[in-house]
Design a binder for these strands. Sequence first.
DNA 1: ACAGCGGCAGCGGGT
DNA 2: CTGCCGCTGT
Length: 811
Amino acid sequence: MRAIPVENEQAGPNERGGAEDPLFAGLNPQQREAAEYRGESLLIVAGAGSGKTSVLTRRIAGLLRSGEAWPSQILAITFTNKAAAEMRERVEALVGQAAEGMWISTFHSACVRILRREAENFGYLKSFTIYDSGDQRALIKRIIKQLEADTLGFTVSSVSGKISNLKNELADVDSYARTANMDDPNEVMFIEIFRRYTATLSAANAFDFDDLIAQTVYLFRAFPHVAALYQRRFRHVLVDEYQDTNHAQYALVRELTRPVEPDEVLRLEEQGQHVERLRDVNGAIPGASLTVVGDSDQSIYAFRGADIRNIIEFERDFPRSKVILLEQNYRSTQTILDAANAVISNNFDRPEKKLWTAVGAGEKILGYTGYSAHDEAQFVADEIAKLREDGMAYKDIAVFYRTNAQTRALEEILIRSAVPYRVLGGTKFYERAEIKDVLGYLLAVANPFDELALRRIMNAPKRGIGPATETALASHAEREQTSLRQALRDARQLGLGPKVTTAIEGLAELLDEAAVLAGTAALEPGREATASAAPPAPVAQVLQLLLDRSGYLEILRNSRDPQDEARAENVEELLSVTKEFQRNNPDGTLVDFLTEVALVAAADELDDTSGTVSLMTLHTAKGLEYEAVFLTGVEEDLLPHRMSAGEPGGPAEERRLFYVGITRARKKLHLSLAMTRSQYGDTSVAMPSRYLQEIPADLIDWKQSPGMATSRGGTQPRALNARRVGGSTREPDALSPSNRPKREWPNAVTNQVRDNSALELAVGDRIRHSDFGEGRVSGMTGEGAKRVAEVQFDAAGRKKLLVKIAPIEKL
DNA sequence: ACAGCGGCAGCGGGT
DNA sequence: CTGCCGCTGT
């Protein structure tokens, strides 16, 4: 993260004359108005790089300085932990210690805080578990198997997607069942799955990610006196990235900013809450002031329910609202902004907005078309080397891609080229099996009703508790109307083998002992007596006990599987995470630790001092900026992604994703693609993305254009942009027949793709390649258009070539 | 109960 | 190509 000076380092000279308030120094007139405006509701439409965080943080600082608000009356909500951390840091830089009393957090962590405080009001324990998507999948998988729903075509991902969408719309099983068509067996089955899923979660005293928001809304709606506590408390609610809010989040914001009715105000007063200064003439507490910041052009989360209408219809939703547009960009060169504006203007039905900058044109965009993903990656590595020679630091360079699968080729080449890099947001530490196992132990201690956690650790490490034993325990619990945890304690009654019985009892004792140590023993009814009067032990100590006595770590260390060594190191890493947690949070409980782990899963605290190139998906890139950006894989079926084609609004959303990528670059933007791309183990021809055509030709220097790459030397470098389809640069989002990429862009690229289909090749043939020179065919695989030749080149080494399009001839 | 295997489905993004 | 599932043999 960049160092955040108090002055706005991005803004140009102050455009207003006169005595300057240092708090607002350097803000342009629109930014300043947005920071100073006072009213019920404010929408700040903040284009990419327009300094919105500066505005938000100054707005907060202004409220505090003028005495309009106490820190505790401010709630600032972001989507990511990273954004929350940055905002906190920047507010701290302005107001110092006062920042500590503010809630600056993500939607999810704000809701967890509320739910933990209020859990006991609606049938949960405050030690509830948060199920991540992996847990959710595991649970759904079990339910599908129980119900044999796979025979009806149900998959884990279809079910979890549907449940998630419903929760984002604030639907629950019952409300959904009321509207469903019960003549449809698939509907009936889905409802049964959903019902069991909901029941299991609630029996486990657990919430999934979507529940965190939805349940908070239900809580507020069902208990107005609970809602009133928060409506009274938060006088200023600020929401970042408002274009990414889904319906549940929107509803939450509405609930939080609702006025408190006079009778509820009286109730608050009876509880000893201070209300006198907040009451209006009618005795009500007016709704909190709401500030939302967003940019509909950067809405890229429709897949998880984000509803762009929330921002588009803000003025209708909040009738007395004010809208302020920030269009001056302090990040990129005009060339980059021109490209971005040109691309995004192809999305129709968007509020007009054009970014501009005072910094000048800058360098052209550099384009490159590789023969393969590796060739493309080599371009990235080579250009990074050049940027280095020109004095750019690795940390100022980023490489973006659409899908995580694309990292492989990039990583291979970067390693080979000795470029230091790190992958942001990839496979996460907390998703590794051994980490989930160990966390399972902690979860089972923190929440004895968490059946999923218990099942996970039952046989990890192996103690001879197989599926049969697990089923026996579960049915015992069912029969006795008790928990799985209690069933473990009752193992002796089950008539299992002596070895297994001892193992189960050992696990039950270990968990009980750890619960006493952690101070969670009293959670189970009837076991209060075992609770210890001593204060809860630190998390690390509890974990150490669990690891020592379960033998988990020991078994990994003694394993002869070489991978287990790395797993053991990961577990040790987790142990040091718990120690670190305790240092930072001396009073932090086990539940606090587990909450942090669940919500801050990406341990990608970005420290820009690391001196590495950053690799990430386009989604991860939002909100970040780099001196130089490589946007890779700009191909049809990748960007726009194949799966977006059938979705309403899909291609438009993919275009916004491309736009987000372009606008991350400060000085130098690179666009690259490959002519062939491998997936599922085989290689196919890739077409240049339709979005490339939307960038004016004179903004891009093609080091190798798609045209050049297909017919060496024959075409003009800018053939790609040379011919435009007459008049129509706008395309409807639906994939109408007249609108398929190939038809719409009958340009040089698609027409010039080489076709060697007829070329006969066999092992042993000598060939000449226009780049790699002469070589001998050492292997042939694949059929028809996917025929691949493996060639041992005399000078260039061994390569795999897609025969159909490779620039080769037989000798 | 469990290791080892072969067959098959999946790579769309994140709290 | 990879990871997961179910089958088989011990």
